[in-house]
Design a protein around this nucleic acid. Structure first.
Lengths: 354, 354
DNA sequence: CAGCGCTCTGCAACCGTTTGCGGTTGACAC
DNA sequence: GTGTCAACCGCAAACGGTTGCAGAGCGCTG
């Protein structure tokens, strides 16, 4: 059937089916098929089949201004958080006949801008962005251009842009309640960058949850990282241990920060969970094999991707849709990095519960 | 400057610069610029700049049959091995003005085929494939279509296709020499799938290296996994421990298999490295934080990507190039999962060395 | 001053589809 | 036998660039 190279054009099909190229086009497109006699259409389909005809998306795109590709912006594919999300996005888009174009922005506004520009030139039909700090201006540009956009893992304050994210506040609450339930009262927070919505919401969630369980949050028990990285976690956790040494538990805004805490503990000869309890966020691959296995908040990453894709497809089909924000529910995964505090006599064995 | 939407065409520029559209095209393209008067070219450039003109790659592609995109096939982006490679590829291609289209094949021939077809329709200028078992037929189809292709992390027996990979034999040799040097003699191998070139070459490398250090490889000390997964590793390692219980060290064909070995040891109450020494391959992210930290063979993943991209760009520029295969050198990273065997009285402390 | 050659730029035909418009055909009513 | 209408399909103009070809202008030679 289909030759390897595909030089067979709509004209070849037209010749074989003995009709005009325009008719072939109509016969082969679902929404214009009604315009052509069923018998003729069948003849065209057979001719197309026989020649192994595949429409050329480039030519089609030139005329229709659609490319059936959608642009996906992520900070860095190397961050284990993103691959499952991408997988979710891709699988869903694939089914719908779309291809995704993935770019890494490193959260650099300049890279974001040039990539966006390049993708728009490539006529992408929509965007999914997981970048932390897409500024208002860039968002506005997309929106103004009329290209559908959905945000992932972050949201936009005024709700003007559809978004899907995990319920960060709820996730942190699960973590705090777990740790407090173990008997900890001096709990610290290694917060994420506050100009990212996840960092910000998790910090807010921490304050809220601590209040809800009736615990104090003195300023020296919160510190703000500049990036979601292991080295930042190590640096801040180290500082916190040195300055507020009496804390017994740390809730980190993300697994990488939590791993940084591990490093800081090791370098100070303190043990987890015996001396300091640590909770992460995201449940990255392999954190169940760390020493100790990390207790963390699991986010349904792949589902985030599929839902984001659904949201985008929805808007592609109907541009006038009201933007909506979908929050996915996280779950606490209790492993070995959390334990009751030493001093306060909580009987052993409670650990595995909850 | 540039409006958000970009309705400015080559004709607009032509009007402003008071020249013919054809002249604008020539003035703006590097390889035809010589054909137009420098003064005119400058006028055109200024007009283009002023209007924020960006050439439409779709239209260009229609005429030139080039899309400036290249297709990247990987088994599964969720496998931590691939993101760094992708990053390398993307960075290099970006610099050269190319965009990469990434698809996951799950090593499923059917998916490979449809994705290839789809990408070819999208006029991709070349392919980079990291899929394990692209069959001869598919490869031939690409080659016959004349689209440049480079293989990553695998190679093709007859050397007819350019490829970049890590020197698997050398990597395994480093592992075996290290373990043998610690005093182990009963060393097992959890091999990868033998229909993948990495799995096969690492197995061959194991046999060769064992021979070189004068050690025996009885059949019960090698078992072949069906996939490179943690569960396969656990299953096979478990079987091997049960049937050939006297072995003191295991060289796994990959980190995931090694982690599976960890699981098998834990479930049998045996300790690593005290009772069994384990070595992995790849140095995936986070394996340095496992318990114990995994001794493994590091492969320069990002470099694999950049080199592959270079190779492809090279062939894009000159189709007649001889295919060549590039082997990158791996390095052994010694961590906590390897130690001298118990019985044989090797003094402690040697562990941290080499 | 005719003729030649070189440099530059305009012209127009593509690339492969889609799509508005209009023409043909045949059924049917009057 | 003429007119109306719907269904179908062909025609040709787009979409936004690229490129072979030809011609205009000009400097130079003999």
């Amino acid at each position: 059937m289909a030759g390897v190279r595909n030089p067979v054009t709509i004209r070849d099909v037209a010749r074989l089916a003995e009709v005009h190229p325009g008719t072939v086009s109509r016969a082969l497109n679902a929404d214009t098929r009604a315009l052509v006699n069923e018998e003729t259409a069948e003849r065209v389909r057979r001719a197309a089949e026989q020649l192994g005809y595949r429409p050329n998306p480039i030519a089609r795109g030139l005329k229709t201004n659609r490319s059936y590709t959608i642009g996906v912006l992520i900070p860095d594919i190397t961050n284990p958080l993103f691959p499952p999300i991408l997988r979710g996005i891709e699988d869903r888009l694939d089914d719908a006949g779309y291809t995704s174009l993935i770019v890494n922005t490193d959260n650099d506004p300049e890279r974001e801008r040039t990539h966006l520009e390049a993708m728009r030139m490539r006529q992408v039909d929509g965007f999914i962005s997981a970048t932390a700090r897409l500024d208002h201006e860039v968002l506005a540009a997309i929106a103004f251009g009329g290209t559908p956009l959905v945000l992932v893992n972050r949201s936009f304050e005024d709700g003007s842009v559809p978004a899907v994210a995990v319920n960060d506040r709820q996730g942190i609450r699960l973590a705090v309640e777990h740790v407090a339930g173990l008997g900890h009262s001096r709990i610290g927070h290694i917060a994420g960058p506050q100009n990212t919505s996840t960092g910000h919401r998790r910090y807010q969630g921490f304050l809220g949850a601590m209040g809800a369980v009736g615990l104090d949050v003195p300023p020296q028990r919160v510190s703000f990282s500049s990036w979601f990285t292991e080295t930042e976690g190590a640096r801040l956790c180290g500082e916190m241990l040195d300055s507020a040494g009496d804390l017994t538990a740390i809730v980190a805004a993300n697994d990488l920060l939590a791993i940084g805490c591990y490093d800081a503990l090791v370098s100070r000869g303190r043990r987890c969970p015996d001396e300091v309890t640590i909770v992460g966020f995201n449940d990255m691959p392999l954190v169940d094999h760390l020493r100790p296995p990390l207790t963390t908040v699991r986010v349904p990453q792949r589902e985030i991707g599929t839902v984001a894709a659904d949201l985008l497809l929805e808007r592609l089909a109907d541009t006038s849709l009201e933007p909506r924000e979908i929050l996915l529910e996280p779950a606490l995964i209790v492993r070995g990095s959390t334990a009751p505090p030493r001093e306060e006599g909580v009987e052993p064995g409670r650990r595995a519960a909850s």
